[in-house]
Design a protein around this nucleic acid. Structure first.
Lengths: 345, 345
DNA sequence: TGACTAATTTGGAACGTTCCAATTAAAGTT
DNA sequence: AACTTTAATTGGAACGTTCCAAATTAGTCA
């Protein structure tokens, strides 16, 4: 009910010591006598004192806040990524500004500026589509560590943490080929992201490696969402010669593809092989369980946060680029071996 | 590259005015002469000055930070809720600490303490299971507005924003009854949450209202997740006399129920009617599209944030309890009218 | 021009911490 | 007892802002 919160000097007065001593107690210094420490700590809970980290930051210039900006929280991949970051950030005694840019560069710029004003010690950014290196230049220039995750940001001289999209896509396609598929589509995504182009590159290279001719119609663009997957299938159904399997840009698209196939009375995993990308939690429990390239979003979030904290503590920032490896998790959605895919059109 | 960030006095010196004038310019005061304002603003971008909101807070005691604690970000319902909050918080010029408690009261306590030290102006809490009124008492006592959402927190004298779970469940069951169903299950959830008990109450009341005898076996507990839905179906399949439809605790469970039915070769929406709760974005595009009680999570997040901001600005907090109305969205998963449900066991 | 009002500008205290240099108290050592 | 170490404690400046009362400058009117 007090108008003004109780401060360090209030408890100093109450304990009959100086504010410096109280400060020492607060930071657990061994310099202070056990008896005074005890008395002070007692008063601290008794008076309901709460530490003012803002004031401390003002003096020390190093805050315990990290900023996290994610392009789409409603996509479970990014939600899990955020949860992974949250985990390590919190247990390191930091607290996070977490914002959602909704793929808007403007909004992203705004929140980064606002975070900066609030004195973040570092930033983890999963950039919105269309982000330029310039958007984080001034941040990086002022010595605040930045880690870019998931999507590449060419030209930015900051650390990045990406998954091995190329290898993952290649492994997925090889698996489908091994099952006997020859007409394989790539579904979902638009050309303007590195994630898309890397995965498509893996898709293409695996096909040529197996001597299968490329068919550009089989790369079916759509929104990288569940709804996008449904749309892609609609498009595919119009083809005279249809694919027998597809690698999807991500799990969300893959689930959409399952939905779309069902409305066309094709059973996913039996009449058509599907592989997703990311390995979101639902991938395991879905029916059919989704074969997918596991990126381990939560683990990736953890690694990103660890990388950032390392740089914050190190003081100087040496730019690091990590590509996390990825593995194909075979479940039901890619189906049993297909004997004569030529006859399935 | 400067060791120390440039401050208000740096640009004051450069512009040949006092720091007070610069401060005035910063807050857009009409007191300052246009010419000096112009000069000062010029120097501000030129020297790359960034406002230190922490220092300002120290002086003013009212920050532009709100805390948001959510029990499970990986559940799309809560992710969307968070996005809704983010939207209004950001456009009001605030920035948010967003944390994920993962249903752990300990962790929740920690992050709330940490947020408090960082000087949040208010808190929105979607409490972890097992949270007690006491956990936010000291916060509320110190005059910081708190809004509790989604889950009730009995005994806490703070504002709450809940959806009308009772009415929603009742409407859903009435609809199923109208389609001819008589043996209707309730799937998912555990007894310790108000959300669960309210929805079950609606379920029960609607059944007795229609003169249908209650069967407690038909309330099938499980984790409130997709995996939980699958598990609930497994349990149901063992019944001698099976339900013909189910209301699910939430959409995640409902999707799981669809999965579970499919692995038992029952087509969701045809052989078995399913109604979800929440209306997550995927509900619309799923196949079959999910009939569900729409809670509009994003809208709810927005309302919660607006409520909080109102209280922050008002200065004094008058406790408000809002129950947002809810509506049944009929799509495909509850199926066509069932003629003779007695013969479907 | 002088007096008065309106428009601008400005020192300095204050917010709650940390840190440094300096002081005081306690404990050993001859 | 006089000194040296070691242990504990302490003022006060500093961090970057806001706010107030007061000072300065410009403008207006007789």
């Amino acid at each position: 009910m007090n108008r003004t919160r109780t401060s360090i000097v209030d408890i100093a007065r109450a304990a009959g010591v100086s504010k410096s001593t109280v400060s020492l107690v607060l930071q657990g210094s061994p310099l202070v006598n056990d008896k005074t420490r005890e008395k002070v700590s007692g008063l601290i809970d008794e008076l309901g004192y709460v530490y003012n980290r803002g004031a401390a930051n003002l003096r020390q210039a190093r805050s315990k806040i990290v900023g996290i900006v994610v392009n789409d929280l409603t996509n479970s991949f990014f939600a899990e990524l955020a949860v992974g970051m949250d985990l390590v950030v919190q247990s390191a005694g930091y607290v996070q500004f977490l914002a959602h840019s909704g793929e808007s560069v403007d909004r992203q710029r705004q929140v980064i500026a606002s975070m900066r004003e609030n004195g973040i010690a570092g930033l983890i950014l999963s950039p919105a589509r269309g982000t330029e290196a310039n958007d984080i230049k001034s941040l990086a220039d002022s010595g605040i560590p930045v880690v870019v995750v998931v999507r590449n940001l060419p030209g930015a001289k900051v650390s990045t943490l990406l998954s091995d999209n190329y290898a993952g896509a290649k492994a997925a396609i090889r698996h489908l080929i091994g099952l006997g598929h020859r007409r394989i589509a790539f579904m979902g995504g638009f050309v303007d992201t590195a994630v898309f182009s890397d995965r498509v590159r893996g898709y293409r290279d695996a096909l040529v490696e197996a001597g299968i001719p490329l068919n550009d119609n089989f790369i079916i663009h759509s929104a990288p969402s569940r709804a996008g997957g449904v749309a892609a299938v609609e498009r595919m159904m119009l083809f005279a010669e249809r694919p027998t399997a597809a690698l999807c840009l991500n799990d969300a698209v893959a689930f959409g593809v399952c939905d779309g196939l069902r409305s066309n009375n094709i059973e996913p995993g039996k009449g058509f092989g599907i592989i997703g990308f990311d390995d979101v939690i639902e991938a395991k429990t879905a029916v059919p369980a989704l074969t997918t390239v596991s990126v381990d979003p939560q683990g990736m979030g953890q690694r990103a946060a660890q990388l950032l904290l390392k740089q914050i503590n190190a003081g100087q920032i040496d730019q690091e680029s990590i590509v996390t490896s990825v593995r194909l998790v075979v479940r039901q959605s890619c189906g049993a071996p297909v004997k004569q895919p030529e006859e399935m059109a």
